[in-house]
Design a protein around this nucleic acid. Sequence first.
DNA 1: GTCTATATCAGGATAGAC
DNA 2: GTCTATCCTGATATAGAC
Lengths: 187, 187
Amino acid sequence: MSTRERLIESTQDLLWERGYAGTSPKAIQQRSGAGQGSMYHHFGGKSDLALAAMNKTAEQLRAEISGHLDGPGTAIERISAYLHRERDVLRGCRIGRLAQDPGVVESARLRQPLDETFDWLRRRLAEVVSEGQAEGELAADLDPEDTAAAIVAVLQGGYVIARAAGSAEPFGRAVDGALRLLAASAR
Amino acid sequence: MSTRERLIESTQDLLWERGYAGTSPKAIQQRSGAGQGSMYHHFGGKSDLALAAMNKTAEQLRAEISGHLDGPGTAIERISAYLHRERDVLRGCRIGRLAQDPGVVESARLRQPLDETFDWLRRRLAEVVSEGQAEGELAADLDPEDTAAAIVAVLQGGYVIARAAGSAEPFGRAVDGALRLLAASAR
DNA sequence: GTCTATATCAGGATAGAC
DNA sequence: GTCTATCCTGATATAGAC
């Protein structure tokens, strides 16, 4: 792997663990094994490197999620697969966590990958909800876009309450609660 | 107001805006008008001051939310009042935002106010859901605790997707979507 | 492309005078 | 209780040699 790639991957990890403000150039250099000069040769500075890392993370996330939402199965099964996809709940969401970082949100450039990712996700989920309605699996009077936003929010908020509790349990409850509501809506 | 109180209030504001890692002693001193020595006279250091600020914020939040959940009205009306309580969506949640801060979550002392606040909130909402079930307003087969967790998560996640979008709109959609699902469950 | 040296400023705190 | 002085480390780079 090239030095450039190692820099990006190290930054991806650190942004996930420590956030944007909490990720220092020095930490990136140490984790990637690249020197000071090397890092500033490949990237203009911290924010350029963060942007590259965020874009790569967003792309990976879309690919992983598509694997669940595009697959076979009913709408509820696919949504359930997406919601249960998570492994390491207490680490939080690689993308969503950055929405709390003022340095990210205050910069149009850095906020863009977040915005695009959630926008794509909500649209894709709204399609799945519509498909479920067409099959009579979900109540016809749900608004697909609102429902999709609620599903995404349950996931993101699940991370928040799990980290606050120091336990994955509240995350699981939130997901189960949401799926039960979805399933109940069609009765 | 005493210097000590001004220190705490300034820290409350800064924690909300910038998070724990992003809040420096210098910024606290400037905002509160207190000097260096004054701050270290009243508090042992940044973390002690943060703890005092978080406890005060948690107390205020519980009081405000109780105002909505304890009031008159049906269960769905009270939950709706709670979800629509928010004014400045893009500022995010005063407590939930701190769950993304490694310096908070990694410290048992600092995580405690978060844990207790969300724990209280989920219990309280579960009671309201149970009351709704007793009145036949909500489906009898919902799990009150799971449903409560889902409601809290929608709110916390709503903040996340709103900040990512730079707009309050996704928050409103998530809240509407969740309320629609709740209302539909009883049909 | 990578290295080492250097620069500036902020973070977080202690010491001791008043 | 509050003030000023001082300390040490880390954040974020730039400069220039190799």
